[in-house]
């Protein structure tokens, strides 16, 4: 069974996205301004959407004419499980920073990432995680006066 190439699929997605933008999203999500081009907030977004649509269509045509139809079985997945785990860790780090504050969350995140990337010596993991989290806190909060998150749990 033959299927479309990744480039064809992506340009098709972009074409659909630009059509959605032009006909539904922009009219709905851009506030109405003046009628003249200069005062209309949707003038430039619409112009860009049209260009995007045209370019995606051209890309789709170009890829179709190349006629490189690849069997679906040969296309490697874009995201591996390992990548999915790394992304999940980061989202958890963002949530935990808001909940438990910068220092504990950074310590945990760094320790997990060090282990994830292949460091197996626990002393190295603990020393690096602690020292780096504290150093960054000192530099950003004390020197650069950045208000790092305290955490909603410890706020009250």
């Amino acid at each position: 069974m033959k299927t479309y190439s990744r480039n064809q699929l992506f340009s098709l997605l972009l074409l659909i996205f630009s059509l959605l933008l032009f006909f539904f999203i922009t009219p709905m999500a851009v506030e109405k301004g003046g009628i003249e081009a200069a005062q209309d907030p949707s003038f430039v977004p619409n112009l860009i959407t049209i260009i995007l649509g045209l370019l995606s269509f051209l890309m789709l045509l170009a890829e179709t004419f190349k006629s490189q139809l690849i069997p679906s079985g040969k296309m490697a997945p874009l995201f591996s499980l390992r990548l999915f785990i790394a992304i999940s860790f980061f989202i958890l780090y963002m949530i935990s920073t808001s909940l438990i504050g910068y220092i504990p969350a950074t310590f945990l995140a760094l320790a997990i990432y060090l282990f994830f990337f292949g460091v197996r010596n626990w002393t190295t993991i603990i020393v690096l995680s602690t020292s780096f989290a504290v150093f960054l806190y000192w530099f950003f909060a004390k020197i650069m006066f950045v208000m790092l998150p305290v955490g909603t749990i410890f706020k009250g």
Partner: peptide, 28 residues
């Protein structure tokens, strides 16, 4: 073509937020 598509996407991302002339919101 890919470079142009990426640049157009960049132009689009730049329109998100407050409209610089009328001060109205876009894609917020």
């Amino acid at each position: 073509l890919k470079g142009l598509i990426a640049a157009t996407l960049g132009l689009f991302f730049a329109t998100i937020g407050m409209d610089p002339v009328a001060g109205l919101s876009r894609y917020t």
